[in-house]
Design a binder for these strands. Structure first.
Lengths: 301, 301
DNA sequence: GTCACCAATGAAAGATATTTTCGTTTCGGT
DNA sequence: ACCGAAACGAAAATATCTTTCATTGGTGAC
């Protein structure tokens, strides 16, 4: 039978080399060779079978097993498991330590790691910087809105559409506008009880500010999602939701991190609204899920 | 307050749990039981032999081995070693980070925290599961493409547009299609040296598969970005980029996490292409930045 | 409904790895 | 040189893992 798990993994990593040193004197020559190999390259040895390790050390299987026993394991199998654990720990011990920007000559694997890290960073920053009071107020307004207009241009336009799609899925009436003229034309229709949301990273995109101003002046509740809480757009916003502005690099334009940030805010809005309108939102979500299922061919198993 | 790198990337079970989730749909019932056991208690399973695990899950040795194979290991022995590694990492003081699902009555602050955490998790899983070789191949194809068409519908449509916007910004010729008919019509124009990209979480969206098939048959290099590496769409894809499939909850539909995942992949593609075409990409990026600056009123500060 | 078919599954045979046994070798002491 | 005990490895015995194959159960065609 195999040794108890805790006992295997319990012993801290470094103790293996120590154990080898302590027990070395009481070991025979061949056993010492095995122990050395094990202590010297745990990861490598973990990949070997008894026979492999025996050959590597120029000894026999029996000796390897004897060594494993001496080191406190029931057999080689368990020593090997412990070695695998050790190797994994050593591996993870090397901190990713992502400090540098993405460089032109970074291998693709590094690009993936760095991008993922930076986006995680952006998310953490955004979550930390988000004013939950403002968010709650915005959610309340949305949940009770007769209709909602969302303005966004360029990359922010996609976020606007994303929010709109989501709100529609829970039965709310929402429209995304990226055409400034149409946006203003529609903003005129808004009145108290309606909601207008402007999404702009810089907070200075005139094409987005203008419809928000119109909506604001017509009495709609206005929300600004921006990375600059002191920018012009906030002038006409009842509630300001701040997205994080992480440093941009040449290969990672601001649009990238602002999008991540904006999407998180949008998701929060959506979930918040879904909570408040749960009674109607849940069935609506389920229904849209159902409807979509029929558009997909039954996939293989 | 930013999270520690190790903590973010750590989630040791994360990678495995993610793999299980991604592959779960392509698993049979008994294999799923095995996969669940393994993902649920890596340490415990590491202590078991094939027979033991088979008994625990009420299946047979054969099934256990099959599952190990599906998870990417040559056999159970290797899976077991990997599990031992995971167990060791978990043991070595790693926050369990067991977050509960978002509940209907969660205060808004919790919603923000949980959403941010889950999206970070999604990013880590995606980065871990991304095949860099496939990614590299896709990047190469894109960098040398005469033109690129991107297909996506619904939430994936926004991702398609995002990618298109980015590629255009570095001077590449790219189009996003969400109208299936137009997509097919355009796909016919593609030929060798062109690239077609299909974005679909389920991998079974006929409206997206069809144009990819046409593009494939016309000799274009085809790429699929999907959460189901065994789904129909991959049939016509030269390169498959897998997005992570995190569990969805009632208040956080699959679309949300798949979008995060897809966007990371898209960003990786973009940065990769920007690297390869740096000579032309850098000035193009700078130029588009310049052009936008003029659309913003000079902001305060 | 019934049939044919295919995927899923587990029992058991087969292959591999580990452990044990046991005889040979080595080495120190007389 | 001879003895005895410890060290060691070859090979048998056992445990574990892998493969094969027949059975099962479900699915779609007719």
């Amino acid at each position: 039978m195999t040794q108890d798990v805790k006992e295997i993994f319990g012993s801290p990593g470094g103790s293996l080399a120590a154990k080898v040193r302590t027990l070395a004197p009481s070991m025979t020559r061949s056993m010492q060779r095995v122990a050395e190999a094990v202590a010297g390259d745990p990861a490598g040895c973990a990949a070997l079978t008894v026979t492999g390790l025996a050959e590597l050390t120029g000894t026999s299987e029996a000796t390897v097993v004897r060594t494993a026993r001496l080191l406190g394991y029931p057999g080689y199998r368990d020593l090997r498991l412990a070695l695998a654990g050790l190797a994994a720990q050593q591996q993870s011990g090397r901190a990713p330590a992502i400090t540098t920007d993405i460089a032109v000559d970074d291998p693709i694997a590094d690009v993936v790691t760095k991008l993922a890290y930076e986006e995680q960073q952006t998310l953490a920053d955004t979550a930390a910087g988000l004013d939950t009071a403002q968010l709650g107020a915005a959610v309340t307004a949305l949940a009770g809105a007769r209709r909602t207009d969302v303005y966004g241009i360029g990359a922010s336009g996609l976020v606007a559409q994303d929010l709109t799609q989501k709100l529609l899925r829970i039965g709310l009436i929402a429209h995304a506008h990226s055409d400034p003229h149409l946006a203003v034309t529609n903003a005129v229709q808004l009145r108290a009880g309606d909601v207008a949301i402007a999404i702009t990273h810089s907070g200075s995109t005139g094409d987005v500010i203008e419809p928000l101003r119109v909506a604001f002046e017509h009495g709609a509740t206005t929300v600004a999602i921006t990375g600059r809480p002191d920018s012009p757009v906030t002038q006409y916003a009842d509630h300001v939701l701040t997205t994080s502005t992480s440093r941009e690099t040449e290969l990672r334009p601001a649009a990238m991190s602002s999008r991540t940030s904006q999407l998180l805010v949008v998701d929060c809005l959506f979930v918040g609204v879904a909570q408040r309108t749960y009674e109607s939102a849940a069935p609506a979500l389920a229904a849209s899920y159902e409807a979509l299922a029929h558009r997909h061919r039954s996939s293989p198993r």
